[in-house]
Design a protein around this nucleic acid. Structure first.
Lengths: 337, 337
DNA sequence: GTGAAAGCGCTAACAC
DNA sequence: GTGTTAGCGCTTTCAC
């Protein structure tokens, strides 16, 4: 920058003013400086600017996994919203283990960002209790976080309730839940969705057969397919399947096809997440739409409040809030009407 | 940091040495400093460190889209490899328009990273001709880039040749190519794969009916399904389909199911990319595996060479290289044997 | 409308 | 084994 200043016969300050489009530079000077900048191929050093101003122009999204459609699609939506505000989104993944999650969010790495969106998977409220961030942070996902943080989550219980409700109201009485939990007292995704499943059963006065609650080690298609086959082989009868994610549901559809079971005639099936692909499966999969667009908007709204308030008058710092975004049933061919 | 130094009764330099695990600090001092650090809740400021050392510990991946399974899965693989080397990967997306691609790679934003992997979609060799990066860069993908850059790409032509070859050798003679190009003289993904398709036909002495070459506006399942229906409605007969991506192939399978066409008896189908989901489609989709693991390894190998060489003796800076990673056929239920 | 000085938080190089 | 000095490239402040 001082090179540019010297070449253009002005001070570094003036160059800085030109670059940042600040007023108070005469048109001729501005032009001369701009010409020199492009002639010398000068580029601002973001690290220095960051060191000085504390702003980076970047919003971080920290997720357990980047290749799961759910996170990938959420990332895209957030990127849209972030870019509309003149910032850009960068995504980091933790690989879904507690230690790496802590590392990603604790050791000053957040300072690279003006604001951060974190989706914890293994960290729970106790781990987060001691943490203080100097960067504005919004938590997303179903893991409970301390009340002093902003938190946006989807309505897992409500969505699962609706899905199960639909299967029950269209005649299913023995609904397998793939990925469910026998003990649903921890607030994670499987437990919350299992709770919705149980609520719907309670509303219909139908008893849940615990043998239909199938725990899984992961939520990919492979494990969905294996679980369903295992359930079938164990001889437990079922006439409906609620898979806790669309990825798992994909495996379920595949396994039902292998078993020559008619969908939705013999067994109806429903997923959760409304991934873009579900509409093209055979049969087209009914699912629960988590309204990620609304969620993305809400997340950024909260983050912006905090980012705006950061460093300012502590009086107008917003109260931490928890938002639950409604979900919505999308019915396709894998369920009856 | 000076706060910590003062509190611990040492100099800032010693604190720095402790933080970075450098030798030459006595155990007692080290312990005292560490205690003070945690008592004061001190965190290193990465911006300052970056400003001073020029290293950030981050590798950037810049892709057109983050929610396409192909990029998402590539990102995961790269993240694995990057993390094995003690760095971490951050992903940015450009949204797939030329201006934003340029912005992402040109305006000094790359300085946030020790090395960058770029997958251009709209920028071509001419746009890149003038660019000089001070950050080590490896290009990926099929867009041609100037020779002075490192470039890793998969074997699009070979993979498409193999896929088409298999359909021909199992009896198909009228193979539709979804996403193909009538004019395949530009080096982009569709053109390269179309070239492989034509090569295989030439080897078999089968003439290509240009009506079977179906151009598409995008490579998602929706457009795959629409294209296939449109082809069918137009009355052009076909007994095989090569979809240029698995996403498009997914739509093709869906459309064939809607038309009650038996796969692979009447029409056999094959995709490209070997996305994880393809194994669970109905029927299971045959595809071309681009060997992304090998590609990820190779990309990082090249990037590391450059990162190591950066700033050093110009004699041992490696020559720019272009690597083509082989692809491989994966046969499942959607094709005959 | 423009410039000079100071300093953001860190570390390389060298002195003690 | 530890401290001192200087400076990375920018912007804030205030003087001109």
């Amino acid at each position: 920058m001082i090179d540019v200043a010297r070449e253009a016969g002005v001070s570094a300050m003036t160059v800085s003013n030109v670059i940042n489009g600040r007023p108070g530079v005469s048109p001729e000077t501005r032009l001369r400086v701009l010409a020199t900048i492009s002639r010398l191929g000068y580029k601002v050093n973001h690290a220095a600017r960051h060191l000085r101003t504390g702003r980076t122009g970047a919003v971080g999204l920290i997720v357990p996994d980047i290749d799961r459609p759910y996170y990938a699609q959420l990332a895209r939506r957030l990127a849209d919203v972030v870019e509309r505000r003149g910032l850009h989104l960068v995504v980091e993944r933790t690989g879904g283990n507690a230690e790496r999650e802590l590392e990603a969010i604790s050791f000053g790495r957040l300072r690279k960002y003006d604001g951060v969106i974190i989706s914890p998977l293994h960290l729970d409220a106790a781990d987060l209790e001691h943490l203080r961030f100097e960067t504005p942070v919004v938590f997303i996902g179903e893991k409970p976080v301390p009340k002093r943080f902003d938190h946006v989550m989807m309505d897992n219980v409500g969505g699962a309730r609706m899905a199960t409700h639909h299967l029950l109201s269209t005649g299913s009485r023995r609904i397998a839940i793939i990925g469910g939990r026998h003990d649903d007292h921890v607030d994670d995704m499987p437990s919350l969705r299992t709770r919705g499943y149980r609520q719907a059963h309670a509303e219909f006065g139908v008893e849940v057969d615990e043998r239909l609650v199938v725990e899984v080690e992961s939520f990919d298609p492979g494990s969905g397919a294996r679980s369903l086959k295992h359930l079938y082989d164990s001889g437990v009868a079922f006439d409906g399947v609620f898979a806790l994610t669309d990825a798992a549901a994909m495996g379920v559809l595949r396994a039902l096809a292998d078993l020559n079971i008619d969908i939705p005639g013999e067994v109806q099936a429903i997923g959760f997440d409304n991934d873009e692909e579900t509409e093209f499966l055979v049969p087209r999969l009914s699912s629960v739409e988590p309204c990620n667009d609304a969620m993305a908007e809400r997340i950024l709204e909260m983050l912006e409040y905090r980012m705006a308030a950061n460093g300012d008058d502590p009086r107008d710092v917003p109260e931490p809030a928890t938002t639950i975004v409604n979900s919505q049933l999308v019915l396709r061919e894998s369920t009856r009407r």
